[in-house]
Design a protein around this nucleic acid. Structure first.
Lengths: 132, 132
DNA sequence: ATGGGTGCAAAGTGTTTGCAAGTAT
DNA sequence: ATACTTGCAAACACTTTGCACCCAT
């Protein structure tokens, strides 16, 4: 991995991710960062998000549609509301035993697994009942 | 859900998915279908893949990069080789109990979960050792 | 000074969609 | 006859990249 320099832009991106409790998309981070410095470009935000997640400073959550980023560092499970698109953390421990099981069963060197639960969050369920 | 008609194009798409043991991307299906009928358009393939997976005839596997489709119908877990991009099925039973756990913990109506294991498959591991 | 970093805009990649014509029911 | 489907191309959403200049080390 390349040597990382410390730049104002990189710091702004990192701060933007850390200042949010939800799971912002790259573009949401871009919007936030633009509020502090309107000259930062999308490319820079994308590049820095990639660098920071490679370095383990933030977590890259691969959700269909648009990838998201998370201030929590370790792997954990996520919940996606298929109605409103909100993503939230789940209070379940990551199970490394599964990775070992799969390693043994397949002969592959497993580095991790990603689990996303799909459902309808309570507020969306309400809206749907009201609407129909 | 809309009423489904039976068309030659739809059948070709379904056959193409069923004739493969791997997990083709929409574009791979498109290539296959074009071999039988060179006038089918990408749009039609995408539309039919969506319709068929909505109808439960095939499974939509949401892998980062490009979505894939699977002739197996029920939900199950997948393995993604982060080096060559190959996707394969895992011989592990789907655990519906997890969905209930999350439902209880969050109050959301969980419909399913998707798990993707990431690792390096044996043949890629070999190549990497040889290359370095 | 040197090599990574930045801004910009253009190009990619994967997917969806508006429309007029076609076709299964 | 009706309304779902198709082919085509344009549009989309998200992300990456080439390039010339900039700046942290």
């Amino acid at each position: 991995m390349k040597q990382q320099r410390s730049t104002r832009q990189r710091q702004l991106v990192l701060d933007a991710v850390r200042s949010r409790c939800d799971h912002p998309t790259a573009d949401e981070i871009y919007i936030d960062v633009r509020a502090s410095d309107s000259r930062i470009s999308r490319g820079t935000v994308y590049r820095n998000l990639a660098l920071l997640s490679d370095a383990g400073e933030i977590l890259h959550v691969k959700v269909p549609g648009a990838d998201r980023y998370d201030l929590r560092r370790g792997p954990h499970y996520h919940l996606l509301c298929t109605s409103c698109g909100a993503v939230s953390d789940l209070p379940m421990p990551y199970d490394p035993e599964l990775d070992e099981q799969v390693s043994r069963a397949t002969g592959c060197a497993i580095s991790r697994h990603r689990t996303i639960f799909e459902g309808i969050c309570p507020s969306c369920a309400e809206k749907q009942e009201a609407g129909e």
